[in-house]
Design a protein around this nucleic acid. Sequence first.
DNA 1: ATGTTTTACTTGTTTAAACATGTTTCTGTA
DNA 2: TACAGAAACATGTTTAAACAAGTAAAACAT
Lengths: 243, 243
Amino acid sequence: MPKSIYETIYRDLKQKIENDVFAYQELLPSENTLIQTYHCSRNTLRRAVSRLVTDGYVQTMQGKGVRNIYQPIAQTAFTIGEIETFRESAARNGHHAVTKVLLFTEFSINERQALYTGFPAGSDIYYIQRLHYLDAMPLILNHNYFLKEAVPGLTKEIAENSIYEYLEQTLHMTIVNSKRVMTVEKMTQIDEKYLMKDVHDYNCMAVISSQTYNSDGICFEYTQSRHRPDYFRFYDNAVRKSV
Amino acid sequence: MPKSIYETIYRDLKQKIENDVFAYQELLPSENTLIQTYHCSRNTLRRAVSRLVTDGYVQTMQGKGVRNIYQPIAQTAFTIGEIETFRESAARNGHHAVTKVLLFTEFSINERQALYTGFPAGSDIYYIQRLHYLDAMPLILNHNYFLKEAVPGLTKEIAENSIYEYLEQTLHMTIVNSKRVMTVEKMTQIDEKYLMKDVHDYNCMAVISSQTYNSDGICFEYTQSRHRPDYFRFYDNAVRKSV
DNA sequence: ATGTTTTACTTGTTTAAACATGTTTCTGTA
DNA sequence: TACAGAAACATGTTTAAACAAGTAAAACAT
């Protein structure tokens, strides 16, 4: 549910762009026109448009107008972009998702793990290995580290469904921020065993390591997502600020 | 040169965060305090702070304050993030950059190339292959496609230095937007020849394909950057909007 | 017809004010 | 002391207005 005016406008414009109400390279109606359309103030409208800019949907040109530069992407496979769960992504791309828990355990972070997870040494965490299937094909192997005190009551059953659904709906935790690093790493024995049984062409994995913060500003999760390289696509839009 | 107030404030706060004036996990001064510090309006200050949020430097918490969640990244190698040139990136990371032009030619886009470049078939383009060295080590192989009519007068000499410097300073073109897709692809013979001569462990490359738009909203560049996997790192910060 | 100037229209920046909502702290009461 | 409520303070949303700066078209003079 959109809870604010600017978000309602943002969604409406976004949907109109996706549905070709405005053609590619066409100018959107001017601010003044849109203000009358949505019966809102200029600031509110501009806030909605600026989100479209960061999404890479439109480009503003001072003195000229706002140009639609949205092009639908060929959704050959699973695509990543924002913070969303595997289920959400799958549904958005029209696929069927299944998650299998390979390992569910808990331990304390040692010095070495503290370096790459970002958790202080000695922190009690849940460590979970999960395999994500898309249309019965294993695509992603996840190594999840959850700060135990921030995510109490986590079970294997929850991990088999959606952990984030549990966090948001049961624990009422809001996920706000996620720092991610993408790298390419050599395939491990575990990768090969679960993901690449019949794919022998590649010896690398696409790896996304992420630290996620909740609304209290606490880093409660470190996750390493190891993706089958031939099905990995990461979309990004960069806007050059301050020329 | 910062041309606006909010950008000046943004840079000042960013620099203060990077230099540990505010400790990690510490709250920044409140909006009212910062308004008095910078003698600006609330909107202007909030605009500066919101940029820090998208940068992943701080996190705002309604009713509580703004928390510093900046952690300096271990700069093991070359890191990517925003739209910036290879030289800029290298300088920022304290390295010496050299570019070698392998191929400089021009031709017209055919049907097949139109699909992945996004240029209409028949467009006249410059096609350039460039090898980027960092501290004498070849790291990136770039395949550049520049729309000829948008980038007139491009020469091999310019390509050996910085094409973007030419675009911005000579042609006064402003680069605004860049859509990027990251993938992992099998190594080609060209990759192996130039990048991986003495590295035989990997058979993949980290590939960034990008379409770049100028301030007229015209896509004038398609580039495929093929990175040596063991030196590839892509940083990203995702903010969950509208929970 | 051509070139210049004016005018209208576009987005960009900044301020001020009001109200909403969430968090913490203080305060008075039981 | 313990608890409820009020107050103070934090960020979030929205409106209105003014001015700046870039662009394009109309109006004008030559």
